[in-house]
Design a protein around this nucleic acid. Structure first.
Length: 288
DNA sequence: GCTGTTAACCTCA
DNA sequence: ATGAGGTTAACAG
C-alpha cells in the first residue's frame, strides 16, 4: 500500500466506471491488434549512454517537424505502434516507443521547466519508523477536484500543465484509455531510485492499466513476483527485467499489479536524469 | 486485539 | 557494483 496515493474526491461521480473500462478495453484490443510476441527479458542494450538505434529504427514516426498538428508526431491508429508483449504468470504488459528521439528531447526539456516537485514534508517518507528523504523527486497532477492523501492529510493535485496534457493525450490516442491523474517521478541520476512496491491503492481501478512514459536516461525496471520475494523461495519465479528508454511507453495491465512488485534499482553508472510519468485513472469516492 | 504491510536505508556476500 | 536480507513501529483491515 502506497502511503502517498490515497485518493478521494468531492463528489461521487463515476458509477459507470466498469462500463467505461470495458469500452476502452475493446478499443485498446482493436488498436493494438498487431502485437509482436517477444520473450521476456531485458529489452534494449545495457549501456544506456549510447543511442538505442536499433529499437528506434523500428518505429515509424510521422513528420516530426510539423508542430502544427499535434497528432503528427505520433503513429496514427491506422498505423499502430509495434507493441512488444511482456508476459509471465500473472504479468501482462505492453511496451512501445511512443515518441521519436527528437520529440522526446523536446518534451523532456519542457517537463524540466514546467513540473514543480514536492519539497519539505512532502519530500519525506516514513518507513519502519524512520523518516527518510525520498530518493527522487515527485509531483502529482490531475483533473480539478482530484485529491490525494499524504501522511493522512489531503492535498489537491495540481492542474495539468500543457506538456503533461500533451503526453497524456498521446497515450490516450495510442491505447484508447483515458487518464485523470499522473504521478511524476524524477530520478536525477542512477543513485535516485524507487524500492519494490505495487500500485495497489484501492482508489485505482485494477482493471485499468497504468501507463508509464519515460524521458531522459534509460533505466532498468524490475518486476518480481510476490511469491518469489524474501525467504519463501520455494516458489521460484524469475524476475522480469526491462529497460525503459527515452520516449517509451509501458502499459501495465491487470492483473500485473496484483501479483508483481516493481522497482527502479540503483544504477551508479547512470549519470543523467530520467523523468517518468505514470498516468492513472482514479476512481473518485464520495468520502470527504 | 491480532496480523500483515511498509514507494526507506543499511550491511554484507 | 549489485542484490538479498534485516530492519522497526505505526497503522489499516
Amino acid at each position: 500500500m502506497c502511503p502517498f496515493l490515497l485518493f478521494s474526491s468531492c463528489n461521487a461521480v463515476l458509477r459507470d466506471i466498469h462500463l467505461y473500462c470495458c469500452v476502452h478495453f475493446f478499443l485498446a484490443v482493436f488498436q493494438m491488434d498487431p502485437f509482436v510476441r517477444q520473450p521476456k527479458g531485458m529489452i534494449g542494450k545495457e549501456d544506456s549512454d549510447e543511442e538505442n538505434e536499433n529499437p528506434r529504427k523500428k518505429f515509424k514516426v510521422l513528420d516530426e517537424g510539423n508542430e502544427e498538428d499535434e497528432g503528427s508526431i505520433m503513429v496514427e491508429f491506422s498505423d499502430p505502434l509495434p507493441w512488444q508483449k511482456i508476459e509471465a504468470e500473472g504479468l501482462d504488459c505492453d511496451y512501445a516507443l511512443l515518441f521519436s528521439r527528437q520529440k522526446a528531447d523536446e518534451l523532456f526539456k519542457q517537463l524540466e521547466e514546467e513540473v514543480q516537485y514536492f519539497t519539505g514534508e512532502k519530500a519525506k517518507v516514513q518507513v519502519f519508523g524512520k523518516f527518510h528523504d525520498i530518493p527522487r523527486k515527485q509531483a502529482t497532477y490531475g483533473d480539478p477536484g482530484l485529491m490525494y492523501s499524504f501522511s493522512g492529510v489531503y492535498h489537491l493535485a495540481r492542474p495539468w500543465t500543457p506538456t503533461l496534457e500533451y503526453v497524456r493525450d498521446a497515450v490516450t490516442r495510442a491505447t484508447g484509455y483515458t487518464f485523470n491523474f499522473v504521478l511524476v517521478n524524477r530520478y536525477k541520476d542512477g543513485r535516485d531510485h524507487i524500492g519494490e512496491h505495487r500500485d495497489d491503492e484501492k482508489e485505482l481501478d485494477p482493471n485499468c492499466p497504468i501507463a508509464s512514459v519515460s524521458f531522459g536516461a534509460a533505466r532498468d525496471f524490475v518486476f518480481r513476483h510476490r511469491e518469489s520475494r524474501g525467504q519463501r523461495t520455494h516458489c521460484r519465479i524469475d524476475p522480469v527485467k526491462l529497460e525503459l528508454t527515452h520516449g517509451s511507453l509501458l502499459l501495465m495491465n491487470y492483473p500485473t499489479n496484483t501479483y508483481w512488485y516493481h522497482s527502479v534499482p540503483v544504477r551508479r553508472r547512470v549519470l543523467a536524469p530520467r523523468i517518468n510519468l505514470t498516468f492513472r485513472r482514479i476512481i473518485m469516492n464520495s468520502k470527504h
